[in-house]
Design a protein around this nucleic acid. Sequence first.
DNA 1: CCCTAATGTGAGCGGTGCATACATTCTAGG
DNA 2: CCTAGAATGTATGCACCGCTCACATTAGGG
Lengths: 192, 192
Amino acid sequence: MPQASSSYHHGDLRTTCLRAARELLEEDGSAGLSLRAVARRAGVSATAPYRHYADRDALVSAVAAEGYRELAAHLAAAHPSPATPDDLAAVGVAYVRFALDHPALFRVMFAEPCDPANDERATAVAAVSEYVAGLVRRAFPGADPEVLATAVWALVHGLAFLYLDGKLDASAPDVVADRVGAAVRALFGTQP
Amino acid sequence: MPQASSSYHHGDLRTTCLRAARELLEEDGSAGLSLRAVARRAGVSATAPYRHYADRDALVSAVAAEGYRELAAHLAAAHPSPATPDDLAAVGVAYVRFALDHPALFRVMFAEPCDPANDERATAVAAVSEYVAGLVRRAFPGADPEVLATAVWALVHGLAFLYLDGKLDASAPDVVADRVGAAVRALFGTQP
DNA sequence: CCCTAATGTGAGCGGTGCATACATTCTAGG
DNA sequence: CCTAGAATGTATGCACCGCTCACATTAGGG
């Protein structure tokens, strides 16, 4: 565990920048996430982060990748092995809840013209994608898994954004959960 | 139609700014939409737009409001009075197509922590929302219209974003249309 | 016809991303 | 152990941004 014994070399600026970026995101939203602010918070010169991240986009992508991994963990925690429509509804509720609990992070993850060339980001996204696909495949072996998996993901993803943007009323969390559950069941309750 | 006869007073700077903002959005994405760039394009000093828009957010909201109205028109054009699941699928395809045809505009409309206090923006959103609700109500008088309307909107909205972000492959437009149609039918094809 | 309100200008402040040249420290290989 | 060179952090500077304020110009109603 490297430690900043003296002053010049920080020790682990890379992860410190990531943590600072996450904090700034939660505090001031996406607009507050500037490389300079990150550097200030890390107690380091304005250009030091460039040693670890090529540009702002690279840092944002790293934050987003972390977000994808946390989202995957959050979904897995919602239900260990979802099989019934009700189980899937619970996972869907967890998805929307994640978005509403970390709005700025969720926006960074999905609402920016992201760099597809970023490996870390791409693999983290693929993990989420395959998680959803596998989940649907296990729950509905009969149906076309691709169409159905895409549909669930899109459904909860759209709900997340509409609630996030205030297009739907998100003031009462339990009401939101009921609505999301109802929507997922509407999609799955009648599958063959 | 006021005309800039002499130089000092522009004539109709307000709408000129809107047009310039739209152009910049299409050309350079959301990042390129700066008040200064708008002013440059309008051939006017950097601070002139502030006479017509309180801040950048106000201009963005105006652009977004225009986008909502265009989206509503685009949907209405897709099918005059949708009634069957297939009709609804066509409208859904139109929704996603709008997003993919105007990615930056769509992001401005939905992917920014928008100002809910902006009247023009709010009413334009309400129009879209009520359009979808009425559409579902007419197509499925039996079902709970609120749940179902929310579900369709969220479904196509989520699809739009996932395609926009490259989370789903959007390289072949007709394949996208098929997928979107299939997803909508999966949701509606089995309603009572 | 002139006075006021509306509209456009200019300079300037603090912030940002990023490139460049430079300083310091860590770490291998001799 | 000692020293090159790689890695890391610093300082400076440029161009751009949003926004404020004092000022110039003009349109249009009394």
